[in-house]
Design a binder for these strands. Structure first.
Length: 224
DNA sequence: GCGACAG
DNA sequence: ATCTTGTCGC
């Protein structure tokens, strides 16, 4: 499977691409579903080099089923709102080299909780056709109330009067994470899965595994 | 107009 | 994202 990704030359062109792809978004999905395989993606950087990593975990045991790392070079500067153009080229390549197809992809960032309602997770989902969600560590857009301090507590993330995500506490007393739908999955399902993926730490095991692999891949590439 | 701004 | 020591707690 060859998934081409258009690389814009300017931020303005990137916004136009987002606008076009946004028409292909599925914000509902098939309904409640326990994914058998959940993938986590992340990217590590060092100067103009980078390493994208994808790790697929069993949805129940959280054991690693498959993982792929792809080294590359930065092809787009970081611009808030345009993160997908910086990270996805290499992430898509890694996904294509997977030997198993994930039922859900957990991204490090946002889905529709985005200035133009089309964040990293939406872009990845539309391009691959895979259900995708975004789990971010800090706020980007939207307003919210602080959720209660126990694990599982949450509050709505609103943007211009719309609910675009949830501020979810994954462990008692730790800072909450920001969950938003990317593609082909609903918000309830997204949050249920995030809680399943956080039996012990604040961040999903998928994210933690992909983070470790991307950094290690960057290191072994340096030693070459 | 001025700041804020996923990773 | 990345640059970084010590420190508190299980």
């Amino acid at each position: 499977m060859r998934l081409p990704m258009t690389m814009p030359a300017t931020p303005r062109e990137a916004e136009l691409i987002q606008e076009e792809l946004r028409s292909r978004l599925d914000l509902v999905g098939p309904g409640e579903r326990r994914p058998a395989r959940v993938a986590g993606v992340d990217v590590a950087y060092a100067d103009d080099r980078l390493a994208a990593a994808v790790v697929v975990l069993d949805g129940v045991t959280l054991q690693v089923l498959d993982q792929v790392a792809v080294p590359g070079r930065v092809a787009f500067d970081y611009v808030p709102g345009l993160l997908a153009f910086r990270e996805l080229p290499s992430v898509i390549q890694a996904l294509e080299r997977l030997s198993v197809t994930p039922d859900l992809v957990v991204c490090d960032g946002y889905g529709i909780a985005h200035p133009r309602r089309f964040g990293l997770a939406c872009h990845l989902g539309v391009l691959t056709g895979l259900p995708a969600i975004g789990v971010a560590k800090t706020a980007f857009v939207g307003a919210y109330d602080e959720p209660a301090h126990e694990r599982g507590a949450w509050s709505e993330l609103r943007l211009d009067g719309d609910v675009v995500g949830r501020v979810l506490r994954t462990q008692d007393g730790v800072k909450p994470v920001f969950v938003s739908v990317g593609h082909a999955v609903d918000l309830d399902t997204a949050c249920h899965n995030v809680l399943t993926l956080t039996p012990r730490y604040r961040l999903p095991e998928t994210t933690r595994a992909a983070d470790r692999l991307s950094r290690e891949a960057l290191r072994s590439a340096s030693a070459t």
